[in-house]
Amino acid sequence: MPRFDPRLLTAVCLLMVGLVQAQGPASTVPVQSKRVEVAAELDRLSRELNFEVRGIEQTKGATARADGESIVERLHLLLEDFDHVIVQAPGASGVERVIILGEKAASVPPPVVGEGVGSSAGADAVVLATQRRGSSHLVTLGVEGVSGGEIIQESMLIDTGADRVVLPVSLISSLGFALDALQQQQVQTANGAVDARVGRVPAIWVGPRRIENVEVAFIDDQRLGTTPLAGMSLLGRFRMTIDDEKNQLTLVPK
């Protein structure tokens, strides 16, 4: 039997210690998400994946994380500091259009300016203050649930290209709807047709006025972005005027 040489064991131990020292201690610093310039990354992605971006100038100077397994996740992270809408092609995973409404701010519901007070439109007019997001206007409205109890206040983009009031799917249960009570169909917005679940709410409150039996469409939260739409199932009941200088919406019943 060959004789064991203790010098060999010493050499092996020294070699292992040297390898551990060379590798250093295990890192405990978490990997940080890469941050990029939002405008430059949006421009690169839009050219590479062939989609349109509106309002990109509002992201000038901003930086954000460049993560996400899908293009939609990546865009939401890039625009996490901005109110935005991502429009996807029906039945596809690609993106058709990204609309940037403006930088997010603390949400303070605009007050009702008045109902027929000082308005040349007449005593029936409702005048609401609006919030600006770039060239767009948002107005806060109350959506009444099907049980007739809770009224959910939502800041909505005024969108005359939408044929219905459009709300996120996440509000379905809060408003008391059962999924089987809603019809699946495509609805039209200013940014194209999208798949939705359609139903009617008992009322939408426009300032102090209760507008009954309004058709609404629920679409996927990610596709809608962060902003519901005040569409023509509500706005079509009024003659509507937007004052850009005063940031006011005047609605006169037809």
Rank of each mutant, 00 (worst) to 15 (best):
I86L: 05
R97C: 02
L75F: 01
Q88D: 00
A92R: 15
I71A: 15
E96P: 01
Q88I: 07
S70A: 01
R97K: 09
G94R: 11
L79W: 00
E69Y: 08
D67N: 07
A66M: 11
Q88R: 14
L75S: 03
S93L: 15
D83T: 08
E103L: 14
F82K: 07
E69T: 06
L79P: 09
L77Q: 07
I71G: 03
E73Y: 10
A89L: 10
V72Y: 05
A64P: 00
E103V: 13
V98E: 02
V95T: 14
D83G: 07
L77Y: 04
E80H: 10
V95D: 00
R74D: 06
H76Q: 09
V98D: 02
I71C: 01
A92V: 12
T63G: 09
V72N: 07
L101H: 13
A64R: 11
V98N: 09
H84D: 09
G68M: 11
E96F: 07
D81K: 14
A62Q: 13
E96L: 14
T63Y: 11
V87W: 01
I100P: 01
G94S: 14
V98P: 03
I71Q: 10
A62M: 10
E103S: 12
I99Y: 01
R65T: 13
R65P: 00
R65G: 12
S70W: 05
I86Q: 04
A92C: 11
E73C: 06
D83A: 13
E69W: 04
G91E: 07
G68V: 02
Q88N: 05
V72M: 08
G91P: 08
I71W: 10
E73A: 12
I86A: 12
V72C: 07
P90G: 10
R65E: 13
F82P: 04
A66T: 13
T63M: 09
P90Q: 09
R97H: 08
P90W: 13
A89M: 06
I100S: 03
R97F: 01
F82H: 06
S93M: 11
H84Y: 00
I100M: 02
G94P: 04
D81A: 14
A64V: 07
A92I: 08
R65I: 07
E96T: 13
I71T: 13
D67T: 04
L79Y: 08
A92G: 11
A66R: 15
E96G: 01
D81Q: 11
G91T: 07
E96Y: 03
L77V: 02
I100R: 05
R74T: 09
A64W: 05
V87R: 04
I99E: 06
F82G: 08
G102R: 09
I99P: 06
G91K: 08
V95A: 05
F82L: 01
G68P: 03
E80V: 11
D81Y: 03
H84I: 02
A64S: 15
D83N: 14
S93H: 14
A66E: 09
E69N: 04
I100V: 12
G94Q: 13
A64E: 08
I71H: 12
D67H: 02
V85L: 13
S93F: 13
S70G: 08
